[in-house]
C-alpha cells in the first residue's frame, strides 16, 4: 500500500516571484490525486517539491508521516515520470529501466527479472525492446519505458508531471487507462499533474485545483463540478454560464453558476428569459446553442432534435434548483 503525502503551508519563492503561496494538502496512501490548474498555477512546482527537486522556502513536507523536507530526492522513496520523459539517451531500454535497481545495487539476475516484469507491466515485449536505443522508439513507446523505469523500483509514491502531453489523443487515452489499472493493481499513491480537465477526471479519485500558487479547491470531481468554490473553479472545471446574481434578482453580491446542460429552450423552466439565438454548433450528441439576452450570452446544450436556428427569438430558462451561487 502506498504512503500518504502531506504538505503543510508550503511556500516556494524564486527571487521576487512566489511560485507557491502557503499550500497545504493531504493525500492518503494509495489514493489517486490530480493536481489540476492552468499553466503557471504552481502545480509542477508542488510536484517537484514533493519529489525533493525543489526545497520549499517555508513549510514542511511529509511522506508516510515522516518529515522529508530536508531530504534529497534520492532518499524520499518516490518515483517520477517527467514531462519530457528524461530518458537517458546514452543507455538502451534495458539500462534505462534498470537504472534505479543498479543504484540500489540489486544483483544482476534480480535486475533482469524485474526489468522484464516492469516492461510487461507497461505492455512492452521485453524480447523486442530490451536492446533498443531510446531514440529509436515511438513517442508512445518512450512513454511506456519512462513509466516502466519509474515503476521498476516499486515506489510507494508515483509522481507524474504531464507525462502524456506529447502523444496523440488515442494513445494518451490508452495510456491513461493502463495507468489506472496499474494504480489499482500495485496500490502506490499516485499524484498526477495536468492542465487538462478531461485527463484529470480519467485518473483522479480527487482533484486539487490550483491557481497562481494557491490551492483553490480539493475534492471529488463531482464536488468541484456541482459545488465550485468560486467563479474560477466553475469556469475551469467544465463549461458554465456565469451571471451576476443581481441580474437574475438573486441578491446583490455573487454570481450564479448555471451549467449549459441545465438550460432548456421552450420547455419546462421555473426561471424564464427571452433571447435571440446567435450561434448553433453541432457537437455529436447534442447541440450547443448560444443565446443573447440582456447583453449576456447564455450557452445551452440541447437535444439534436430541438428546432432552433440562428436569428430565432426563443424563450429559454432553467430550474431554479439547478442554480448554484458563488460569492466571488
Amino acid at each position: 500500500m502506498g504512503l500518504s503525502v502531506e504538505l503543510k503551508d508550503v511556500s516556494v519563492q524564486y527571487g521576487s516571484f512566489q511560485a507557491l503561496k502557503g499550500v497545504s494538502l493531504f493525500v492518503e496512501g494509495g489514493e489517486g490525486l490530480v493536481l489540476l490548474g492552468p499553466s503557471g498555477s504552481g502545480k509542477s512546482t508542488l510536484l517537484r517539491t514533493i519529489a525533493g527537486l525543489i526545497t520549499p522556502t517555508r513549510g514542511r513536507v511529509y511522506i508516510g508521516g515522516r518529515d522529508v523536507t530536508e531530504l534529497p530526492p534520492d532518499r524520499r522513496g518516490v518515483s517520477m515520470v517527467f514531462q519530457d520523459l528524461a530518458l537517458f539517451p546514452h543507455l538502451d531500454v534495458f539500462e534505462n529501466v534498470a537504472f534505479g535497481l543498479r543504484i540500489r545495487k540489486v544483483p544482476d539476475d534480480e535486475v533482469r527479472r524485474k526489468v522484464r516484469w516492469a516492461l510487461e507491466l507497461v505492455r512492452l515485449d521485453p524480447d523486442l525492446f530490451l536492446k533498443r536505443r531510446v531514440h529509436e522508439l515511438s513517442g508512445g513507446q518512450q512513454q511506456r519505458v519512462a513509466l516502466a523505469r519509474a515503476l521498476v523500483v516499486e515506489p510507494e509514491v508515483l509522481l507524474l508531471d504531464e507525462p502524456f502531453s506529447h502523444v496523440d489523443l488515442d494513445i494518451k487515452n490508452r495510456l491513461l487507462e493502463e495507468l489506472k489499472i496499474l494504480h489499482s493493481k500495485l496500490g502506490f499513491t499516485l499524484i498526477y499533474v495536468t492542465h487538462d480537465r478531461f485527463e484529470a477526471v480519467e485518473i483522479g479519485d480527487r482533484i486539487a485545483l490550483m491557481k497562481e500558487g494557491e490551492m483553490v479547491q480539493v475534492g471529488k470531481p463531482i464536488e468541484l463540478y456541482k459545488k465550485p468554490k468560486n467563479r474560477f473553479v466553475a469556469e475551469f472545471f467544465g463549461e458554465a454560464n456565469i451571471v451576476p446574481t443581481s441580474a437574475l434578482g438573486l441578491g446583490e453580491k455573487g454570481y450564479a453558476v448555471i451549467r449549459p446542460e441545465d438550460v432548456v429552450i421552450g420547455g419546462n423552466a421555473t426561471y424564464k428569459l427571452k433571447g435571440q439565438v446567435v450561434d448553433v454548433t453541432f457537437l455529436w450528441h447534442y447541440l450547443k446553442v448560444e443565446i443573447q439576452s440582456n447583453g449576456h450570452i447564455y450557452k445551452a446544450y440541447v437535444d439534436l432534435e430541438t428546432p432552433v436556428s440562428v436569428g430565432d427569438v426563443v424563450e429559454f430558462g432553467w430550474d431554479v434548483r439547478d442554480v448554484y451561487v458563488v460569492e466571488e
Binding site: 519529489a51 525533493g52 527537486l53 534529497p72 530526492p73 534520492d74 518516490v78 518515483s79 517520477m80 517527467f82 519530457d84 520523459l85 528524461a86 530518458l87 537517458f88 539517451p89 537504472f99 534505479g100 543498479r102 543504484i103 540500489r104 523505469r149 519509474a150 523500483v153 509522481l159
Partner: peptide, 21 residues
C-alpha cells in the same frame, strides 16, 4: 538538459552517482 539528472536523483541516485552515471 536538467531533467535526466533529476530523473536519476528521483530514481535514487546521489548527486555524485547522478553525475557519474
Amino acid at each position: 538538459s536538467e531533467t535526466p539528472t533529476q530523473a536519476a536523483r528521483v530514481l535514487g541516485a546521489s548527486r555524485a552517482q547522478a553525475f557519474l552515471r
